[in-house]
Nucleic acid binder design. Structure first.
Length: 625
DNA sequence: TGCCCTTGCGCG
DNA sequence: AAAGCGCGCAAGGGCA
């Protein structure tokens, strides 16, 4: 064993490297970090993935164990298995790595310091890697060591013939990959020292970050539960109908490829995604000034969803018509293509394992998903969600809150008209229509719905005019009318916009106010949205926790989508009870406002359970009966 | 050529 | 005075 003496936060620490582990650390919380083979798209789920070293640390001492050595591996496994130890690590990567390498699930015994760092400082613009946090909390050595390691990697990479002017991030990536493929016994000392210090810094951050969150203990407790639960969902993965995936992939490649070829030929090289295409259409019959569809934030015509078809309503010339047809064909399959490629690149044993980040939305702590993002699968193209199947012997159900954000804002503001309507089982969008009618402003229910979203999102006349395709003066009447007819919400908006420092959710979570980058102004109009969006997220997580823990249905949630839980329920008699419990868990009183939810069984026309939007499943069920 | 920033669009 | 919020991903376009 080699022991290095170095410093963290100006204090001497020891980093033990090697086979003779030395005295065991006392039971308690250890900083944990692993180094692995380089990460492919499939990351820890790649069959070739291997952990190379495991680092444990107290605040003063780190042990770096070479997992390729059987004795050290056994020592590491012993500590990881021993429930007298719990761990803290940065991100959930180490938890997944330990599971992949050792088959040991430490999710319940691990605290994610990165998640704590977000709670401590939810400003989206700030970095939260260990070395940045280390510097922030008086442990700058990690940054220094990182630079030393970087210099080593740069020399190695440039010597190996890399581009001399490559960006630092690029060299770092290549450097880490190079390190990851070196045999462990050829790694430089500074690598092990860095690795050990990583774990020490992580361990030292824990007691610093917890008070920095200023979060109530109950909130921290539920976040801990959620993090472990999200980890297990990722590890379990989602089953993919691979035949369907492959046929969709072939179809989407052919469709988009054909369309792209045709369009390029006619336009002389303009792709079907290029902003230049709109100018081209302008020369082939489209009067953009007469565009009646929605606009993008930039004010150019939006071609999202069905909008793109509006181009066909203009008197196009022959070339314009041909490119339009190609564009329609392209747009119909582009999203499908991208999603299928993403899924295909990550499939392992018929499953994908997207990250489910419990606090992915830094500003509001909503959950996010990536690799691939499973929270933005198309609802209009059923084939995308339809690729995902429950495990054998199970079926999928979906249960979602009804208009949860509007109800939350109604409750927080105590907007009596809204609350009465909710209690009476009425329609909040129609209420807005009726309230405006009382002021002599006539709008459709569709615009009433958009107007209600403005309340939640903090929008103004311009946004409504653009999205609804109505004149600015009418939109202004709607917006100002709403402020008058919903005085309590208006008061809440004014009250919240007075908060220039932070916003607190119903659970006491601190949220940041945000700043307009160009003007430097505080975007205080967004505060109501942050409060509402984040509080609604907490209501969902609380309901999920009740369902999993209080009702004893741990592991039943298949995938969450903000205000919705998709459930994977064993087929059979107990299914009805599980669904009933889910409905009970998601039915609650929020400040006198009932929050309700209803479950839908997801079964296609052939009687096969697969993922799909709830309203689609309801239509299928109706068609059958 | 590769990197970085912006834009658009899917979901909520 | 006015201000649509939060994500992840792919691709375009400017730049070196």
């Amino acid at each position: 064993m080699e022991t290095y003496t170095t410093t963290v936060g100006g204090q001497d620490v020891l980093v033990h490297v090697g086979p003779d582990f030395g005295p065991m650390p006392a039971p308690g919380v250890l900083g944990l970090d692993v180094e692995s083979t380089y990460l492919t798209d499939r990351a820890q789920f790649d069959p070739a993935f291997k952990v190379r070293t495991v680092q444990f640390a107290t605040e003063q001492e780190a042990w770096v164990l070479d997992v390729t050595d059987p004795a050290q591996r056994a020592t590491a496994a012993g500590i990881l298995t021993d429930t007298a130890f719990s761990f803290c690590s940065h991100t959930n990567m180490d938890v997944l790595s330990v599971l992949a390498e050792f088959g040991i699930d430490i999710a319940d015994r691990n605290i994610d310091t990165r998640a704590l760092a977000i709670m401590a400082d939810p400003d989206k613009d700030n970095d939260r890697d260990l070395k940045t946090l280390g510097t922030l909390y008086g442990m700058d050595e990690l940054r220094q060591d990182d630079e030393s390691l970087y210099a080593w990697m740069q020399a190695r990479w440039v010597d190996a013939g890399g581009r001399k002017n490559a960006a630092k991030a690029h060299i770092e990536q290549v450097g880490w990959d190079a390190l990851a493929s070196l045999p462990v016994d050829e790694l430089p000392d500074r690598f092990f020292i860095y690795a050990g210090k990583d774990a020490i810094v992580c361990r030292r951050l824990l007691p610093l970050l917890i008070p920095a969150t200023q979060a109530p203990a109950e909130l921290l407790r539920i976040e801990q539960w959620l993090a472990a639960t999200c980890n297990r969902i990722q590890a379990r993965g989602l089953r993919v109908d691979e035949n369907e995936l492959n046929s969709l992939l072939a179809y989407a490649r052919a469709e988009t490829g054909d369309a792209e070829r045709v369009a390029k030929e006619i336009t002389g090289g303009i792709t079907l995604r290029s902003p230049k295409l709109q100018g081209w259409f302008g020369e082939h019959g489209v009067e953009w000034d007469d565009w009646t569809g929605a606009l993008t934030p930039k004010g150019t015509p939006s071609l999202a969803k069905e909008n793109v078809k509006l181009i066909g309503d203009f008197p196009l010339d022959e070339q314009g018509r041909a490119v339009f047809d190609a564009l329609i064909k392209f747009r119909r399959s582009l999203d499908l293509l991208n999603k299928c490629e993403g899924i295909s690149a990550r499939i392992v044993d018929g499953r994908i394992h997207p990250l489910l980040n419990p606090v992915g939305a830094t500003t509001t702590a909503r959950m996010s998903s990536s690799g691939p993002n499973l929270q933005n699968m198309s609802k209009t193209d059923r084939r995308m969600r339809g690729m995902f199947l429950p495990d054998p012997g199970h079926e999928l159900w979906t249960i979602d809150f009804d208009q949860v954000e509007l109800r939350v804002v109604a409750g927080l503001a105590r907007e009596e008209k809204m609350i009465e309507t909710i209690l009476a089982g009425g329609d909040l969008h129609q209420l807005t229509v009726d309230e405006l009618a009382a002021m002599g402003v006539t709008i459709s229910r569709q615009v009433g719905k958009m107007a209600n979203f403005l309340i939640v999102y903090g929008g103004g006349p311009k946004a409504l005019a653009e999205q609804a395709g109505i004149p600015l003066d009418i939109a202004a009447e709607v917006v100002y009318g709403i402020r008058e007819r919903y005085p309590a919400i208006n008061a809440l908006t004014i009250y919240m916009s007075g908060m220039k420092d932070e916003v607190r959710t119903i659970s006491g979570r601190r949220l940041p106010v945000t700043v307009n980058r160009k003007t430097g102004d505080v975007r205080s109009y967004a505060n109501v949205n942050y409060l509402v969006q984040s509080s609604a997220r907490e209501l969902l997580v609380d309901a999920w926790h009740r369902f999993a823990v209080d009702f004893g249905h741990d592991g039943v949630v298949w995938w969450p989508v903000h205000d919705e839980l998709v459930l994977q329920v064993p087929t059979g008699e107990q299914a009805a009870q599980i669904i009933a419990d889910a409905e009970r868990a998601m039915t609650l009183d929020f400040m006198g406002v009932p929050i309700t939810a209803s479950a839908v069984r997801l079964v296609d026309e052939q009687g096969v359970s697969r993922w799909m939007p709830g309203d689609v499943a309801e239509k299928i069920a109706k068609g059958k009966s």
